[in-house]
Simulated assay, not measured.
Amino acid sequence: MPLLEVEADLAARARRVMADAGEPLTDERLRLVLLCAHPRLSREAASALSLRLVLGVPTADVARLFLQSTPTMAARLTRARKKLAGERFALPQGAELADRLAVAADVAYLAFTAGYAPATGDAVVRAELAGEAVRLVRVLRDVRPPDGDPDRATELDALLALVLLQHSRRDARVRDGAPVLLPDQDRTAWHQDEIGEALDLLAPLASAPPAPYLLQALVAAEHAIAPTAAATAWDRVLARYDELLALTDTPVVRLNRAVAVAEVAGPRAGIDALSGVALRGHRLPSLRAELLRRAGDLDGARHAYDAAVALCDNAAERDHLRGRRAELA
């Protein structure tokens, strides 16, 4: 079944199904995500299909979120659509509903990432997509079963705090169409109401067991509470990344941890922390270029900037990288 037909079919069925014993699940986007989270699909396939069909994230961006090539992701999406073609859709209850809500949380997080740091196009941030992801997390918290798994409830609270903290910076992340790095952002342009809400969500979670969304939210909170970039408690940020690495050792976590290592122990230590990291796209060579620049290796920085520019599919970021390279002259 062609993609548009599947999407239309999902939307039509979503309008007919009930979430629980006559109680309609009124949020259209969430219903569609839950329908995509069919038990015939793996969690990753369901998340990817939801991002593409329900939220309209470009295939190339979906591929980057899952650290895959665009052709590989396109093939996976095609297989997922075929698996759902002809399936009977009904929203589940009980434990299965809780499992599908967990998939929906993953979708919201990935959608936010696609809006916060688009891999393609010419926008520094897609605020509308990021804002829709924030709204979806709010809906998930509203519909979660009251007697559900408390750890999942904690992670949903942490996820909302995380996306609020990141989203609060949206206006400061762009100047004249160009990206503004975190140390250079005007912190008075950060949305303090969203930061306050996020910190209130995190306060009761201080003694909660470490979990991925919670640790990322605590890192974001360190930036939010620092009055200036120089005042950031990078030792605490690094400690959080060490905890996160122990839970989920991924190239993205190692990349972000290397930034904290460089701030605590210097750029050479940050470069060493990148050893063995393999990651598609421009973000790895772009970070290496910045660290080499700080370490005084300008030739190495030039080569790394060139590699990053060649791999960057976002026009605004590509222009930014070219500008940073030109400054080395």
Rank of each mutant, 00 (worst) to 15 (best):
D9N: 15
L34E: 07
A233H: 14
A273Q: 01
E243T: 03
A95E: 15
R175T: 12
Y109P: 00
W190Y: 15
L182W: 02
L162Q: 08
A246M: 05
G296V: 09
Q216V: 00
L238W: 03
E155D: 09
E128Y: 08
V103C: 11
P285I: 01
D61Q: 15
P71E: 06
L91S: 02
C36M: 13
R236N: 14
H223D: 12
R257S: 07
E128L: 11
A11H: 06
A85P: 05
A189I: 05
A98R: 04
E290G: 12
G148V: 10
A229P: 00
A63W: 04
A45Q: 10
T188C: 03
G121L: 13
P209K: 03
V62G: 05
R293N: 10
D297T: 04
R187Y: 12
A304V: 06
A206G: 03
G323M: 04
L136P: 00
A75S: 13
A161D: 10
S207C: 01
S47R: 13
T120V: 13
D319S: 13
P58V: 02
Y116A: 07
L3R: 15
A289K: 01
R294Y: 05
L182G: 04
A75F: 06
P210Y: 03
V17Q: 13
A119H: 14
A105V: 12
L65F: 12
A246T: 11
